[in-house]
């Protein structure tokens, strides 16, 4: 039974030393150790969270960049289209103007030509009339130099007139 009979002296030393070690380690060892382990754990967790947040931010930023790029591209398209439209319009306008101007010129030219033509015609007519009269005078002078020819002519003419009347 000696084995299972607690010895008073050892019991005293056990209570004393265990009490001391619980108090000392609790105050000077476990408290700083546990708190610094916890601090380290939370700092690791914070760092991980920070990294995650940064990654998310980066993703968001690159998404934003893409959006901006897309917008810029769209804007460029719009601008280009506008420029093209303006150019087309201007070209069309210029073309129309040139055409109408050319037409006007043409019309005027045509009118001028007509006028010139009329003037030339009338001049030509006068000239032709004069010449005809002159030629006719000459011919008549030539032809009507004898009476017989005159009578023949009058006869022929009368005959023409008769055939036309019948």
């Amino acid at each position: 039974m000696d084995l299972v009979t607690p010895d008073l002296g050892l019991l005293f030393w056990m209570c004393l030393s265990f009490g001391i070690v619980v108090w000392l380690l609790g105050k000077y060892a476990w408290k700083p150790i546990l708190s610094s382990v916890q601090a380290r754990e939370s700092s690791i967790e914070d760092a991980l969270n920070e990294a995650k947040k940064m990654r998310e931010d980066m993703a968001r930023m690159s998404a934003g960049n893409e959006e901006l790029m897309r917008q810029a591209r769209e804007e460029r398209e719009v601008l280009l289209k506008e420029a093209r439209d303006i150019r087309d319009k201007e070209i069309a306008e210029a073309k129309g103007k040139a055409k109408s101007e050319a037409e006007a010129l043409l019309t005027r030219a045509r009118a001028d030509i007509q006028t010139e033509k009329k003037a030339a015609m009338s001049e030509l007519k006068t000239l032709v009339g004069d010449l005809s009269v002159m030629i006719a005078e000459k011919i008549l002078r030539e032809k009507l130099a004898d009476d017989a020819a005159q009578r023949a002519l009058v006869d022929r003419m009368l005959k023409d007139a008769e055939s036309r009347l019948s």
Binding site: V21, L24, L25, Y28, A29, W30, K31, P32, I33, S36, V37
Partner: peptide, 13 residues
């Protein structure tokens, strides 16, 4: 134990 663990705590500090 005191030497080991208080020393360990010092290291952490």
């Amino acid at each position: 134990m005191c030497w080991v663990f208080i020393g360990m705590a010092r290291g952490y500090a």
